[in-house]
């Protein structure tokens, strides 16, 4: 019996898996953004001492895991499972990092929704008493994503105002069955939704319907409303996608305007030349592991809903004229400090 399933698609985690530590490492541009003081490490050089951007991204992910584990007072041997993924073909950043870390590894691909996906599955492993410590991790790198999905960096093309800037960075969370820290109470895995957007320069609009669908499903399943949350944060919809999501959720009868933000808008400031905002797996990861986690620990946020969003396209599917399917997974994270 699925005793812990609530409503259509939400799961209730009765044991309250705890996020006992997080770590975030970001690139130089993110380190100049408004959230710079919340990141554990800002790289001076986005090669991170490696010969290629792919190697650099894998190293960023690996070092972020090591740092999170260390901050939890543990060693990689203590971690029972690592769940993670990234944007590169065959998720090489995550799997190559797992090769060095020697932690049993679940490779995930949820595009930019991977932070919420890995946190969801990791929390379920803990709640089901299959592990005591897991690491949920993801990463993205502007330069490795550009060359895989778009143009060579030095190519002199123009970015449309709807385009977004892939965040260079990685965020990792150590989730545990015991200990202290903000806890995961509900997870709402999302459906793949595609409303026919084909413009790969407008990912926000492609993913917004999935985000709206998951948020509405979460409200219906749990009975929560805007007033139950201090923050509802989508992953990387940018300005346009955020606007659309808010309107679509409102159309279903739920107003989220007072608490709603988007990690892609938080991570960069307007003068950083990023058009619609940040994107990439690393976007929701570094903003959640850095900024939101800090505020949860301090008790400034009592309860938040992380809705990481992914665009499930590939360069091949785009060239063959396919539209862009979106996905969004929602995770409720609650501060342990009393007073709600």
């Amino acid at each position: 019996m699925a005793n812990n399933k609530v409503g259509q698609q939400t799961l209730k985690l009765n044991s309250h898996p705890k996020i006992i530590a997080t770590a975030s490492i970001v690139g130089p541009k993110e380190g100049e953004g408004p959230l710079k003081e919340y990141f554990d490490m800002v790289l001076q050089d986005d090669y991170f001492g490696e010969k290629s951007w792919e190697k650099a991204e894998s190293k960023i992910l690996r070092e972020t895991v090591k740092l999170a584990v260390q901050k939890a007072g543990l060693t990689p041997e203590d971690i029972h499972y690592m769940l993670g993924g990234d944007l590169l073909n065959q998720i090489i950043s995550a799997s190559f990092a797992a090769r060095e870390l020697k932690i049993p590894f679940f490779g995930l691909y949820g595009a930019c929704s991977t932070m919420a996906e890995s946190l969801t599955l990791g929390s379920i492993l803990i709640d089901g008493q299959y592990a005591d410590y897991v690491v949920a991790v993801t990463s993205s790198h502007f330069s490795s994503a550009e060359r895989q999905f778009r143009f060579p960096l030095e190519h002199g093309n123009q970015r449309p105002p709807t385009s977004q800037w892939t965040v260079t960075g990685s965020g990792a969370m150590v989730v545990a069955s015991g200990g202290e820290g903000p806890c995961v109470t509900y997870v709402t895995p999302g459906r793949v939704i595609d409303l026919g957007i084909k413009d790969a320069n407008n990912m926000g609009a492609a993913m917004a319907p999935a985000a709206a669908h998951t948020i509405v499903a979460h409200f219906r399943d749990t009975g929560f409303l805007q007033r139950d949350y201090d923050v509802i944060a989508t992953g990387d919809l940018g300005k346009i996608g955020k606007d659309i999501t808010q309107e679509m959720v409102l159309k279903e009868g739920y107003d989220i305007s007072l608490v709603y933000t988007d990690c892609g808008i938080e991570v960069f400031s307007d003068d950083q030349d990023v058009n619609s905002g940040g994107s990439g797996c690393g976007c929701s990861a570094v903003v959640t592991c850095g900024y939101f986690y800090d505020r949860l620990v301090k008790g400034e946020i009592k309860r938040m809903l992380l809705v990481a969003t992914g665009a499930l396209l590939s360069p091949t599917s785009s060239q063959q004229g396919e539209s862009i399917p979106g996905i969004a997974h929602a995770v409720t994270i609650e501060s342990m400090s009393k007073g709600r």
């Binding site: 409303l195 957007i197 407008n202 609009a205 346009i240 659309i244 539209s323």
Partner: peptide, 13 residues
């Protein structure tokens, strides 16, 4: 899908 595409067009700068 058509409706959504039209809606997005009018939203995007």
């Amino acid at each position: 899908k058509q409706q959504y595409n039209d809606y997005v067009k009018q939203k995007q700068p």
